[in-house]
C-alpha cells in the first residue's frame, strides 16, 4: 500500500516536473525565436494571395503595405488592397499589442470614413482565403502558453517541435504545433488544430531569405485546409527593410491617404 503511494507520488512528481520542464523549454524556444527577430525596425512589401479551390480554380488578390516595430509592444502596420478592383483603395491599419486587444481601423474610400473594427472576429477567414485573421496578425509570445514536444526533422532541417495554446478565448484553435528551425529559430511549419482538437490546417514556410544580414523572412507561405481541400498561397515580393517610417505614417490621416 505504502509502496503504491510512494510509487504514485514519485510518478506524479516526475510527471509534474516533466510538464514544468516542457512549459519552460517551449516558452524558452518561442522567446528565443522572438528575440532573434527583435530590432527588425521597419519594412514594406507587396503580397500576392492565390486562392485555389478543390477543383483547382484559382483567384488572386493583391495588396501592399508597410509596418513598423514598436519597442516593448507589438507593431504598427498598414495594408492597402490593390485587387480585386471592387475593394481597391481600401486600407486597414493595425496596432498589435503584447497584451490586450489589438486596435484596428478600416478606411473605406467610397464614403471617406475611417471605422474602428472590433477585435473579436479573429478566427474568421481573411478575404475568403484559408488564412484566418489571427494567422496573419503578429504572433506575440504573450498571446500563447507553450509546451516543448521533441526534436524532429522537418523539410529536411532539424527542428524543435513546440506546442502552443492560444490564450484568447476567441481564437479558433485549441492548439498549434510549430516547428522552429534549430539553427536560426525561424518557423518551418505550423499545424492548426481546431477547438475539437482536430487537425484543420497546415502552413508551410519556404524560400526563406535573409534581410539586413539578420532577419529571415519566408517569401512563400502555403496554407492547406484539410477540411475543405482548399489552399491559399502567399507570395511576398519587394520586401524592403530599414525604410523611413515614423509614427505619423500610422496616424488616422495617414490611413486616409494610404495608396
Amino acid at each position: 500500500m505504502i509502496k503504491t503511494i510512494i510509487k504514485l507520488a514519485l510518478g506524479l512528481s516526475i510527471l509534474f516536473s516533466a510538464t514544468a520542464f516542457g512549459q519552460d523549454r517551449g516558452l524558452e524556444i518561442a522567446k528565443k525565436a522572438e528575440e532573434v527577430d527583435n530590432g527588425w525596425g521597419s519594412n514594406s512589401n507587396q503580397l500576392k494571395m492565390t486562392l485555389t479551390d478543390r477543383n483547382g480554380r484559382k483567384t488572386t488578390r493583391q495588396m501592399h503595405g508597410y509596418s513598423k516595430e514598436v519597442e516593448g509592444d507589438g507593431d504598427m502596420s498598414m495594408t492597402i488592397f490593390d485587387t480585386p478592383e471592387t475593394v481597391k483603395g481600401t486600407a486597414s491599419m493595425t496596432y498589435t499589442h503584447k497584451t490586450g486587444d489589438d486596435d484596428q481601423w478600416l478606411f473605406m474610400p467610397a464614403i471617406d470614413r475611417v471605422k474602428r473594427i472590433s477585435s473579436s472576429s479573429k478566427s474568421g477567414p481573411f478575404m475568403g482565403s484559408e488564412f484566418a485573421f489571427e494567422d496573419l496578425s503578429s504572433q506575440e509570445v504573450e498571446k500563447y502558453t507553450f509546451k516543448y514536444m521533441s526534436e524532429e526533422k522537418m523539410n529536411g532541417v532539424d527542428c524543435f517541435k513546440v506546442e502552443r495554446f492560444p490564450i484568447s478565448k476567441t481564437s479558433g484553435y485549441k492548439r498549434n504545433i510549430v516547428w522552429f528551425n534549430k539553427m536560426n529559430y525561424r518557423p518551418e511549419k505550423i499545424e492548426f488544430y481546431d477547438r475539437k482538437n482536430e487537425l484543420m490546417k497546415t502552413l508551410t514556410f519556404s524560400e526563406y531569405k535573409q534581410y539586413s544580414s539578420k532577419y529571415w523572412r519566408a517569401s512563400v507561405m502555403e496554407m492547406i485546409n484539410h477540411r475543405n481541400g482548399k489552399e491559399t498561397r502567399l507570395d511576398f515580393t519587394n520586401l524592403k527593410f530599414d525604410i523611413e517610417l515614423t509614427e505619423e505614417d500610422f496616424s488616422q490621416n495617414a490611413l486616409k491617404r494610404a495608396k
Binding site: S118, K122, S123, G124, P125, A132, R195
Partner: peptide, 11 residues
C-alpha cells in the same frame, strides 16, 4: 460582433 459564428466564417 459575433465573429466566425459556429465556425461558418460569417461575422
Amino acid at each position: 460582433t459575433f465573429g466566425n459564428v459556429f465556425m461558418s466564417g460569417i461575422d
